[in-house]
Amino acid sequence: MSRPVAVVTGATSGIGREIALGLSKADHHVVMIGRDGARGAAAVESIKAERPGASLDLHLTDLSSLADTRALAAALIEKHPAISLLVNNAGVFSASREVTGEGHEKVLAINHLSPFVLTGALLPALQAAGRARIVAIGSDTSDRAKIDPDNLELERGWNFVRAYGQAKLAQMITTFVLAERLAGSGVTANVVHPGAVATNLIRAQGPIGLAWKIMAPFMLTAREGAETPLHVSLAPALSEATGLYFKARKAAPPNPLALNPVLRRAVWSATEQLISGRAMAPRRT
């Protein structure tokens, strides 16, 4: 029997690498998505060292680009008509507001828009697997975050906490909506908070990076951080669990905003607007 196929974004370092390793140990064929070739090769090598016979593929893609994300999805579907697991793990944190070549705020593009596009485009392959799981790596910064569907790009009032929290909350909301739409299809969708982990997110320069570095010794290791995501990805007991938010292996109450039906629909359609590739008109308020 062939191995189930798992796709993991941001798999070349940090929690993503540990998730890829854990999935290899669980006999999955793991498609690792990363952006740095050298780091990717090193990750593949280290996983193979720890798990001889691991079946791995490495795809290099810049997930800040929705066009590249679409091209990646098309290539993945071509190669793997059935995908059993998608872990949307790639994430960034930024000290200043940056805009991608496609005009999107970078934190939003990588943490929310790109996974939304990738998940949507892989849906036919996930359904083809019969049973499949979508796991979004969220963050407890979304627990207290606020969200404005008309200002997801934060053209006004950008700050790094707000940008990250709102992007993660948007990702949570669209994951929950998807879970609802996929109910009964065999495809589940959940959000996982991995815990406060010292990963490469702390590559950030300046005071933010310094703060992370000081905190690092008190935080979880990447391996510990991968535990809950792996549990939600693999545990047989969770094969039906969907539309939930997991912390430390247990379902936890999400930000109440993520349960507001009006807001959920607005965030979903605002996201569809943003990924449509149409230039957003500057909004006046």
Partner: peptide, 21 residues
């Protein structure tokens, strides 16, 4: 209606509605 088509509208849209509604 909040659809990809109305993204070009640069003014406050009165009675803006979700596609599902």
């Amino acid at each position: 209606v909040r659809t990809p088509m109305t993204t070009v509208n640069a003014f406050p849209m009165h009675g803006l509605m979700e596609p599902d509604e």
